[in-house]
């Protein structure tokens, strides 16, 4: 018997105390936050900072961003990824979650590590889910790294994206900030509308 998919509904404006309670200072334990790397996590430490803009160019103050990524060896911490050659990292789960409502300029911030290349074909990337009030259905996108030019050039997903829109998926190093910081803004609409995937 086939059963129909349960339809999606908006995350609404009041998700914080349920999905990101510690970030927003509610008395409930968070499953995940913006800090994705532990003390012994392998790989290059990076920080990802971004904003979410609506179609009027205004900052979205109540979006929830989720990240799913491979570890430094390009391995996902999940049973469907059983490639023994790519080691698991006991100190890296690969999931992060951050709402845009706790910083003065409504940014999201993830402290993580740069993922390895997943299967030799795909360039290092973060898988991103975007949720907010005003979206009945979440959106999927990806974040790639501007300093991985060669790998990006042969990435099959980036190649599926019209060339003039690929830039919306590529995060750039911010040389003015200490550490390794990448900037990745998400534009829901407009000239620079981020590429979202049907997947």
């Amino acid at each position: 018997m086939k059963r129909g998919q349960t339809p999606s509904q908006t995350v609404g404006p009041f998700f914080a105390y349920g999905l990101a309670p510690e970030q927003y200072n509610y008395p409930f334990a968070s499953l995940a936050g913006g800090s994705m790397a532990g003390d012994t996590t392998e790989g290059q430490r990076i920080r990802v900072i971004g904003h979410v803009y609506d179609g009027a160019g205004d900052l979205v103050p109540d979006a929830l961003i989720e990240i799913w990524q491979a570890n430094a060896h390009g391995r996902y911490n999940h049973q469907a990824d059983d490639r023994k050659d790519n080691l698991l990292d006991p100190d890296f789960k690969g999931f992060g979650r951050f709402g845009t409502g706790t910083t003065p300029d409504n940014r999201f911030i993830f402290d993580t590590i740069k993922p390895g290349s997943v299967d030799g074909r795909q360039a290092p990337h973060l898988n991103v889910v975007v949720l907010m009030r005003g979206m009945l259905l979440h959106a999927y996108t990806r974040m790639y790294f501007a300093d991985e030019e060669a790998a990006n050039a042969s990435d099959p997903i980036l190649s599926a994206v019209p060339e003039d829109r690929r830039g919306t998926l590529i995060a750039r190093r911010d040389p003015d900030l200490p550490g390794v910081v990448y900037r990745f803004d998400i534009h829901m609409q407009g000239e620079r509308e981020t590429v979202f995937f049907d997947v």
Binding site: G55, D119, M135, L136
Partner: peptide
Amino acid sequence: TVLRGPTKPLVPIAQSLS
């Protein structure tokens, strides 16, 4: 939804380990 939903067609991609 009018200013927050994507307006361009979604780009179909094949499923990988990601």
